[in-house]
Design a protein around this nucleic acid. Structure first.
Lengths: 381, 381
DNA sequence: ACCAGTTTCGGGAAAGTTCCCGATAGTTTT
DNA sequence: AAAACTATCGGGAACTTTCCCGAAACTGGT
């Protein structure tokens, strides 16, 4: 028979249903429900137990508060006690559990970085710059890439927010027109800094280079080299960089009295295939351009390859200027004239502003300088 | 006068020291120490309170257990109750706090990736491959780069472990000879998978390509093209890839009866500057090589640049073969012959093995195929 | 009305910290 | 020697979630 778990009697015990597959009993004497306890086997299989502050406290016969104080370098503790704790902690290879801390303080010490891609030179380098600053400030970095897809971007922002990052460094995709997902970030008061591909409609810091001046210089250079029919393979209108570089292009043409031919202006989505298609299109026009200003270096290089394959001589028949000064630009034949921008520094700057943003929020746009680097692809001599 | 906080009398209260800047009192009547409570002002300044499971429970007048069950899709819950909870959760934009979960389960759902650099094509691409698999499996990724510094690598491993990552994907630096920091990882039973630059002395999975066969093919190809004095600008001996590719190089020479000239074999640390220095050195030997097999594409390209600057004609006077088939290899002039390796797939494979490792650990070395891509830099016709 | 059985819910521990605040022992002042 | 004070320590709440298990509220069948 079954003995009551409380009064140890057996006479008043009766069955009382099954709960989670186990028979349950009821003792009428002491009005008590119970089930038979499991065998002791399959409990207590905690595999790896990280050494905690409590282990140290127990070992030393003191309280966890005291251990915490010693470890945190707090005052209010005896020098001898502290040393004792510190020694044992070292011996036990104690590692504080950042999860507990994060849960308590709602701070993860993780910064999320979201970029559209990192196949090319630009974004990896920005990331390295940002990482340099952030890791120095004690932050880890979680990197996501949206792959130029708006949906992926939204999903990534969600995932990053869900991971409770302490801040966000973002460069948007070419598809990003709706920015509600970033408004959510701002609403939850998570510091957010845009770089390169920014969102001027949002009240949060932005780090860009002087795209206008860079583009203006580049196109003016082409004019001065004698090119007259200058095309612009531009980025999507959705991106501010595209618009600014476009404006530089247009103003440079205007300044030198050159007509604007809309046939020579193409916005595209920055994919390799499209770059090739449009380069071919431009070069097969009845009146093809004699120079092309490309939104960035990868685009410029695609154009160069297309031109080469068509037997178009660079720079004699076609001048080309890029933007960003990727290392490959100096290597390719002929070397590419391009607008240099401080890529690494952009990452550092964005990170610095993010850190500052955590202290005292301030909305500002930071602009870094550009510089024209003249190489063989545009020197028509 | 001061009223005792316990017996409400004022006659027996006397001062009793200052604690943390606040006056403390002692009531002799009830033998009770106390301080005056603060004004209600400066407490309760919790700024942003994420909506929790308890908020939902309170709102609905039920227990947090029930809410948890509803959200977790558990059984043991009334369909109506579940719907009610799910609706409110959605309305309140409830986001479960992964930190609490992580603390409870000791699982962060974060995988750490540690690479020596990501300036070039290789590592970013591997990372993208890994990320594709990992994010599909619900993992976030934390990326660190050791910058080819052993000390940074050790620090990064420590930081990653400290962040309680659930697994680690690693490619070591050129300096890594001591692997104790990885032994620590293994000892704590954190899944660890090496790729590309592996640690065969550790009992954990490794993902590599068939470096030996690739190198062998590459050198044999050079021989077949008529090159006879083939140099090898190799990686550091510490790396297994270096040794394997070296072996392929040596065996190919031997197979075709070519002598091994130690003067033509150089191990270096994979930095740009050294690549230039050694390329110059090789080309200024009394008997310079007529071909060079480079450990990887960036190295091959540095050699090409040096050769060009010295007026050495490629491929007529110098054949060059690289390894990895970086996209730049197809672009440069002349295009570079190279050994293609499935870079993206390597990342995917490493990630898959890491995930598998979390379920049932198994130690194995996985080898991916290579394929020679012949281009202009080595075709001596 | 009584009992066996089922469905649904609540209480509370656990995870590892930090931090507030009360408590104790010892030390100096009056 | 009492009063006022300092130095040091412990207790326990809080952070959020999951999960175990006990309990209440039902449903049918006698």
């Amino acid at each position: 028979m079954i003995k009551c778990a409380k009064c140890r009697q057996i006479d008043f015990v009766q069955k009382s249903g099954i709960v989670r597959g186990k028979q349950r009993y009821f003792c009428k004497a002491c009005d008590y429900h119970f089930t038979l306890p499991e065998a002791v086997e399959n409990r207590k299989n905690k595999p790896r137990h990280q050494v905690t502050i409590i282990d140290i406290a127990n070992e030393l016969g003191i309280s966890k508060s005291t251990v915490s104080r010693a470890l945190r370098g707090h005052t209010d503790i005896h020098e001898g006690t502290r040393k004792m704790i510190l020694d044992l902690a070292q011996q036990l290879e104690y590692q504080p559990n950042p999860l507990a801390n994060a849960l308590l303080k709602s701070r993860t010490n993780i910064v999320g970085i979201l970029v559209p891609e990192f196949r090319h030179y630009f974004f990896p380098t920005v990331i390295m710059g940002a990482q340099e600053i952030l890791s120095k400030a004690g932050y880890n970095v979680m990197i996501c890439q949206s792959d130029e897809s708006y949906d992926t971007e939204v999903a990534n922002v969600k995932a990053l927010m869900n991971s409770r990052v302490d801040g966000l460094l973002v460069s948007v995709t070419t598809q990003t027109n709706n920015v509600d997902h970033f408004r959510t970030v701002l609403r939850k008061e998570v510091p957010l800094v845009f770089f390169n591909r920014v969102c001027p409609e949002l009240d949060t810091p932005q780090v860009i280079v002087d795209d206008y001046a860079g583009a203006f210089q580049a196109v003016e250079h082409l004019v001065q080299q004698g090119y007259r029919r200058i095309a612009h393979l531009a980025g999507p209108v959705s991106l501010l960089v595209s618009r600014l570089r476009m404006k530089g292009y247009l103003d440079a043409l205007q300044k030198h009295g050159l007509p604007v031919d809309n046939e020579l202006i193409i916005h595209y989505d920055l994919t390799e295939e499209k770059a090739r298609i449009y380069a071919n299109y431009l070069l097969s026009l009845p009146q093809p351009p004699d120079a092309i200003f490309a939104i960035n270096d990868p685009t410029a290089i695609e154009i160069m390859l297309v031109a080469k394959s068509r037997g178009v001589k660079i720079p004699q028949e076609l001048g080309i200027v890029g933007f960003s000064n990727d290392p490959i630009s100096a290597i390719i034949e002929p070397p590419l004239t391009t607008v240099e921008q401080p890529v690494w520094e952009m990452g550092r700057q964005a990170a610095r502003i993010l850190l500052e943003q955590m202290e005292n929020p301030r909305i500002e746009t930071y602009q870094l300088p550009t510089r024209l680097v003249v190489r063989g692809s545009s020197v028509n001599c």
